[in-house]
Design a protein around this nucleic acid. Structure first.
Lengths: 138, 138
DNA sequence: ATTCGTAATAAGAACTATTCCTATTATAGA
DNA sequence: TCTATAATAGGAATAGTTCTTATTACGAAT
């Protein structure tokens, strides 16, 4: 059976968790790394990645995969979905009624046991839409 | 304005498209590469990636991003969603009523212009579920 | 408070999936 | 058939993430 590892409460781990919460808008590992280094300048990127993994395992944050290749981290662990700007890559929250897992007909899900439903919406954020409008007029 | 490049109809491109269709269940670039090399043994992986990109641009296939880090390719370009096995990584089709983009309240989508809605379901496929059952009994 | 075992760290190497580069090949139009 | 150049094979480069290892520092037990 899987051992529960002891977990030390290090400064790095605390600052990393705090940075994810304070940055708010779904930062990437590198953005979190930059924020953490303003407080603890000797922090390494691998420490950031390792602790993000631990925090995800502990359910304290969530990892969000979008259209891009980077993983974003979310301090809001309540069930919700995301919308991503195809221009600037920004990720925002969306609260649409989730599909009720239990009402899914087994045949429509190829007889899979359904665990999680993720909805990812692609779009253009208001700022980028405005910018595109300006460029069109010139 | 964007130039339309001339496109040559090469053997590699034809075999790559055919492989995506014949492999059926959402192959990755490496799986397509293996299949193509059974017909054209000197094909390079970069040729596979380049042509997959062209075929996606031309709307002949679709790229599907799941929970894993590899991109899967889908010969079915009709709108549908996917379910992915968290054990073996297999991707299958799912036909659930899509969210109607036009009925979304602007405020719930942070005033984004909505372009596409992707639903990705995570679960356990029947084969892996059976395997896990067996292991549990031992 | 001090000691000590070991979890966590910093630094950078390694890895994986994908994209880019360049000399060579082969397609399609003349 | 000839020719211009798009596409190819092969491999280097890149980006994001994970792994390795010597060193540091947390916290339990003295």
């Amino acid at each position: 059976m899987p051992q529960v590892q002891p977990r030390r409460n290090t400064t790095q781990k605390r600052v990393i968790l705090q940075s994810v919460a304070e940055l708010g808008c779904h930062p990437t590992a590198v953005q979190i790394y930059s924020a953490v280094r303003q407080v603890l300048p000797r922090t390494s990127l691998s420490t950031v990645y390792r602790n993000l993994g631990i925090l995800v395992d502990q359910g304290k944050i969530k990892a969000v995969k979008g259209a891009g290749s980077e993983i974003h981290y979310d301090h809001n662990t309540c069930e919700h979905n995301h919308i991503e700007c195809t221009v600037c890559g920004r990720v925002c929250d969306v609260h649409v009624n989730p599909l009720n897992i239990d009402t899914l007909d087994p045949e429509t899900v190829s007889n899979f046991i359904v665990l999680e439903v993720h909805m990812n919406i692609l779009g253009i954020c208001p700022e980028c839409a405005e910018q595109l409008e300006k460029e069109k007029l010139q």
